[in-house]
Design a protein around this nucleic acid. Structure first.
Lengths: 334, 334
DNA sequence: CTATGGTGTCGAAGCGCTTCGACGACCGAG
DNA sequence: CTCGGTCGTCGAAGCGCTTCGACACCATAG
């Protein structure tokens, strides 16, 4: 292994000069810098991460706690992860991947000074990991919105507002009888707040407009989707507009509607709440409210970095939803 | 931060004694050990990862290079990742997530001594990352099979054999006219070898049995699946058995067959090559050859660890396929 | 009773890097 | 000219941990 000593010797300067030349934290003459850079290239020098972490109390690594269960919307998770990793790169940070249920993970990694900050996905209302996270000295960013955000930076899509805009879109098209096919019961039971926020936005907006509205949770499987659609059709036979907030069940929901003799969008309009690429990847291009997962992941990193260099305090940021009308919504049938 | 010094002082022993008590690398009397453990608990001591890495040349971190593109079989990737992370935990290792196309990533992370080993997914025949990987001192494990495996441990499903067993299953049911709907052309062009190995196994086995066989690549989208099925139906109108090696297109392939008036399995039998959970998550339970992604990820970690403690040389391990008959295959129509 | 060999513990030397304080050299201002 | 101030560089002190060699102690064998 070539060390900073080797570089210093090769360039004929002291170790500290090399360090300063490389970090730019003190002025170094052009000629010296060039000699050092040449030596670095020549010797293919790469600083030892551990030594650097020890001396500088910075690791250039971020912890990302992601739900690696396969049952839920894998694609969306992947997009968050991609957003985080990609944005981290621009800050010269790497990403340490922790699994959701490895509670000791955060502690190990943060208390052991392996990371500069922690980003946590899929936060529940009273997430048991939050107290642990709070007592670490590294800043933490949550993707999601717990009951008590004190001390944390939070970022998420404004799901309440997403629900409202989906409902408004249907209202403007004249629909007076609408339904929400949402997350699996397990997700609601876990008090993952995006699911609840979605339901609240949907219910409130429908109530405000005085239209008939039902909500049905939906398991993420073919049979779950069939069951959910049938429950909706039973409870609200005259339904003409459906908001679907469940990427996995989406295709099955559409298929089931067709099977039950309802044509989309002639009999029933469908608005999905999902990443754009899944909305346009279906046989029918779906009207959808985008979940900008990659972008949110990126923002999470930005917030973590801002906290790190002290330019910003903890804050909560809710991203405004954007609805794009495509082929699955139309005027309510007469 | 509490350091090993604090613990030593609290327990009334020297720093080295604490280190040995914690690592178990030298015998320590029961009474001393207990005092030390008490102090550790009391002070909530957590060793500094960087310091440890510096002193011991071990980081307890693994690099995992995964294709975070969203276009391909996200679910499968996730399963590999899960397998790796989970198994790494049993060896007290964490996982640093690198993206496929960050070529500099391996070098940065390995040359900078951030990781003890590297695991690389989605390897191409002449992968440009391999030379870089070869010149690092850390062992590397590939999930996949490049042309030249020298110096690497490799693990993958035996796709050739998987294709054979899918074909054999169809042959035994009397099918004499079969097709393979496979990976997207882009994957083949990239020379990702699993795709090619699959095609080879399929083609050879069909030829050996003297049955009519066609192969069609298939884009991972609804329209891609429709097109691929139609191409198959055109080239081989009498086809009665189809092997599908494309998780994403799977539902659309089945839907298209139905739309073209072919009933499964009465007119056409379908064998999928995919993880079991996607095979049973479809409206119809699919006969499938399992891709044991989680297990393979775990094996990759095992191999990396075995290399690390020198108990094993580099080797290639191909996992034998297991076919499970379910609802989508039946006797060839008369 | 001495030689022998475990056991259990300690001190000190690094591991490779950052950073602080110091110090010449050189500049322009007075 | 001299004085203060930059600029560019250096030496040394850690950062927190592991590990090597040394050594004291005790039990057993000769």
């Amino acid at each position: 292994m070539t060390t900073i000593d080797d570089v210093a010797r090769a360039a004929g300067v002291s170790v500290s000069t090399v360090s300063y030349a490389l970090s730019g934290k003190r002025p170094i003459s052009a000629s010296t810098r060039e000699r050092i850079e040449a030596a670095v290239r020549e010797l293919d020098y790469r600083p030892h991460a551990g030594a650097r972490a020890l001396a500088s109390a910075r690791t250039n690594v971020l912890a990302l706690m992601a739900p690696l269960r396969v049952d839920v919307n894998v694609g969306v998770i992947m997009q968050f992860v991609t957003g985080v990793v990609t944005q981290a790169q621009t800050y010269h940070h790497d990403v340490l991947l922790l699994t959701q249920d490895d509670h000791a993970g955060v502690e190990r990694v943060a208390a052991g000074s392996m990371v500069d900050a922690v980003i946590m996905m899929d936060v529940e209302a009273d997430d048991p990991r939050l107290p642990i996270l709070r007592r670490q000295r590294q800043p933490a960013v949550l993707i999601g919105l717990p009951r008590d955000t004190a001390g944390f930076s939070c970022v998420d899509l404004d799901f309440e507002s997403a629900a409202r805009s989906a409902v408004d879109h249907l209202l403007r098209l004249g629909h007076r009888s609408i339904a929400l096919v949402g997350s699996p019961q397990a997700v609601l039971d876990r008090h993952t707040t995006y699911a609840a926020r979605m339901v609240r936005g949907f219910t409130e907006e429908a109530a405000r407009a005085g239209v008939a509205a039902v909500f049905e949770p939906c398991e993420s499987s073919h049979s779950g989707a069939v069951a959910a659609v049938d429950r909706v059709l039973t409870r609200l036979p005259g339904v003409t507009g459906i908001v679907v907030h469940n990427e996995v069940a989406l295709p099955a929901v559409l298929a089931t509607l067709r099977e039950r003799g309802r044509s989309v969008p002639d009999d029933i309009s469908v608005v999905a709440v999902c990443p754009t690429d899944v909305a346009v990847g279906q046989p029918q291009q779906l009207t959808s409210v985008d979940i900008p997962a990659t972008a949110i992941g990126g923002v999470a990193v930005d917030m973590a970095m801002a906290r790190l260099d002290g330019t910003q305090l903890a804050e909560t940021r809710l991203i405004s939803p954007v609805l794009t009308a495509r082929a699955t919504t139309g005027p309510a049938p007469a």
